[in-house]
Computed example of a mutant assay.
Amino acid sequence: MARRIATPLVNPAYAPVVPRFTNREYLNIVYRTDADALRAVVPEPLEIGEPLVRFEVMRMGDVTGYGPYTESGQAIQVRYDGEWGEYLHAMYLDNFPATASGREAGAYPKTVGQPGLYVDHGALVGVLDYGTLRVATATMGYKHYEMDPEEAARQITVPTYLLKLVPGFDGTPQVAQLVRTEITDVEVKGAWTGPARLQLFEHVLAPLADLPVREVISASHLITDLTLAPATPVHDYLSNRKEHMR
């Protein structure tokens, strides 16, 4: 296996491992938003159908190379080449090695944040703070109804699309690719659904509310073990641009 190169050279910000997630706990809330808002942020050639967004908070019980941490973000339902999946729009973490690895070794749109997931008086609560300000609050009835484990696995194993963007020193892109990945080796240890609510608050540096909540469609609470598959490029924006310039 080739050695993975990362910055700094003699003390990489993240471990050269393929992480295995143990006891990864999800709070997922799927909601309807404005179609025009999605068109403004979803890159071509991805296609939008019903304007659905999945807000997620994930508490990582244990991750090889990173340890426990919490993550939150938004995933948009999209279609590529006839296949339905999700486009990862935004991700906020409280763990720097996982943030650096996701951005550099992968294509995940990760940045810093303070997410949390906990139980409060019969409600599962997911929150996201940016700095000192709250930008998202999600609540779901705690373990009201059990879910089919196979349905739970299908929710989180759809194809995932991301933008791999690497600028050059002059600010122009050196890498601009649409890539595809997916979750593999999933074991669902618990899965529940129930009533849910979601509030998003305006923040210029954490613009989750630019995809406003119009209707909550569904919610789920999952506990899983899983692995992230390596990303595969499916569309190269720079190659297409060069072909058009000829």
Rank of each mutant, 00 (worst) to 15 (best):
187 E>K: 14
52 L>P: 00
56 E>I: 12
19 P>A: 04
112 V>R: 13
60 M>I: 13
83 E>P: 00
32 R>P: 01
138 A>D: 08
230 P>S: 06
240 N>K: 09
74 Q>C: 13
99 T>L: 11
78 V>A: 06
152 A>H: 02
83 E>W: 00
108 Y>D: 14
114 Q>S: 15
122 G>H: 06
228 L>T: 14
196 A>R: 03
91 M>S: 09
179 V>K: 00
224 T>W: 01
241 R>Q: 11
58 M>A: 15
200 L>R: 06
150 E>F: 14
178 L>W: 07
106 G>K: 05
233 P>I: 01
203 H>R: 08
88 L>M: 13
235 H>Y: 13
199 Q>C: 15
101 S>Q: 11
195 P>R: 11
117 L>F: 04
175 V>I: 10
168 G>D: 14
123 A>E: 15
136 A>S: 14
129 D>G: 09
25 E>N: 11
155 Q>P: 07
246 R>N: 14
107 A>S: 06
230 P>C: 13
198 L>W: 13
216 V>F: 13
47 E>F: 03
96 F>S: 12
191 A>V: 03
153 A>V: 03
143 K>A: 13
150 E>V: 15
118 Y>L: 08
18 V>Q: 10
203 H>V: 14
244 H>V: 10
113 G>Y: 04
68 P>N: 07
214 R>N: 15
195 P>Q: 10
188 V>D: 01
140 M>I: 08
84 W>N: 14
95 N>Q: 11
160 T>W: 11
214 R>T: 10
198 L>G: 08
22 T>S: 09
38 L>E: 00
112 V>D: 15
153 A>F: 00
62 D>R: 05
203 H>N: 15
120 D>V: 04
40 A>W: 09
169 F>N: 05
226 L>K: 01
186 V>L: 01
25 E>L: 11
199 Q>W: 15
99 T>Y: 03
20 R>H: 09
219 A>N: 04
138 A>S: 13
222 L>R: 02
60 M>F: 13
233 P>V: 01
150 E>W: 04
152 A>P: 00
163 L>E: 12
123 A>M: 15
227 T>L: 07
68 P>L: 08
219 A>F: 03
121 H>G: 10
244 H>G: 07
137 T>I: 13
159 P>F: 01
31 Y>P: 04
226 L>R: 07
59 R>S: 07
42 V>M: 03
150 E>R: 09
145 Y>I: 13
212 P>G: 00
102 G>R: 01
11 N>R: 12
3 R>G: 14
122 G>R: 03
204 V>N: 08
73 G>R: 03
61 G>I: 07
39 R>N: 12
20 R>C: 06
65 G>L: 02
181 T>G: 11
77 Q>I: 08
168 G>T: 09
24 R>P: 00
38 L>D: 00
113 G>R: 04
67 G>W: 04
58 M>G: 09
